[in-house]
Amino acid sequence: MRSPLKWAGGKKRITSEIANLLPKRGKKRLVEPFVGGGSVFLNLEFDEYLLVDMNKDLINLFNIIKNQPTEFIADAQKFFNGDNNHPEKYYNFRTQFNQSADPYERSLMFLYLNRHGYNGLCRYNKSGGYNVPFGRYKHPYFPKEELEFFSKKAQNATFIQGDFETAFSQLDVNDVVYCDPPYSPINRTSNFTAYAGNSFTDEDQKRLVACAELAQKKNIPTLISNHYVDFTKELYKGATKHKLLQVQRSISQKGKGRIKVKEILALYK
């Protein structure tokens, strides 16, 4: 099942690879410290889910879909009409979103902006303002079925806004952890990891590995995905198992700009 959101770097295409590597025996809860668009949680079967992300708008949206699905879907669908699929309307809604402090209103516009904006990007400036440009799609898709499925699946999930250590601090022996952090850059001169309005540094990548190693000592396995570059090759050398993948990864709108790159799945078990 697809996420209701377009999400750069979403994991729908490699969910089966993730599922094959994640140890499940005796594990009842999936923990994701970087839930993103939610594709992994939506496509893996566990009794419970603990889903964390730094992005406050994302977590607010997920909680509203969980708790008010019928109302939210009806209200959100009103944004998806031809009259709103124009740059002027898009930028007006983006301004309204940035000025709003109401979680429900922001969630409606967050879905609209996500589906009408450029190629699944979620980006904020240093002042916290959403700044993704208009996407120029002919007919933006309204994800009614995806929202309904998400709401049903979310009844067994807890969504929390916070740093990834928030998730690791709540682990128990029945958990298994999948981490999809902002990726280490392939080209360090053109790095972009600030989708939630904050950068994710090399030190953060190292801090994540330290959390995984601590969980490993408690018999809680952690799987981490990332670009396969010199930095991550060294970073994950202590992992129990490694798997390399060729994955289509680009934010280019043009198909010829979507090249395959190497990714790594590193398991600490």
Rank of each mutant, 00 (worst) to 15 (best):
N92G: 12
K89P: 05
N98P: 12
Y118R: 05
K138P: 08
Q96G: 08
V132H: 01
Q68M: 12
L111P: 08
L121V: 05
A101H: 13
Q99I: 07
E71C: 09
Y112K: 09
G128W: 00
Y137Q: 01
N85R: 03
H116Y: 15
Y104F: 13
R106Q: 10
F93T: 11
G129A: 14
P133M: 04
P103C: 04
L121S: 02
R136N: 15
F80Y: 02
L111M: 08
Y130H: 09
G129K: 14
Y124S: 01
Y141V: 10
P69V: 11
E88G: 08
N85H: 04
F79T: 07
N114G: 09
Y90S: 05
G82A: 06
V132C: 04
N92M: 13
N98S: 10
N85K: 00
F93D: 06
R94I: 03
F72W: 13
E88K: 14
H86I: 14
L121F: 09
G135Y: 02
P69E: 04
Y137T: 02
S100I: 07
N85Y: 01
S100D: 11
F134H: 09
G135K: 02
Y124W: 05
C122T: 07
G129M: 08
G117P: 08
H86M: 11
M109E: 10
L111C: 11
F72A: 09
D75I: 13
K144R: 14
Q96A: 14
V132T: 06
K144I: 13
F93K: 06
R136E: 13
A74Q: 15
F110D: 04
L121A: 03
M109V: 11
R115F: 08
F80V: 02
S107A: 15
R94Y: 03
F93Y: 15
F97I: 10
G128N: 00
F79G: 05
N119E: 01
F72Q: 05
R115K: 12
E105I: 10
K78M: 13
Q96L: 15
N92P: 05
R123P: 00
E105N: 11
D102Y: 06
H116T: 12
R106A: 06
P69Y: 00
L121Q: 00
H116W: 06
Q99H: 11
D83T: 10
P103G: 06
Q68L: 14
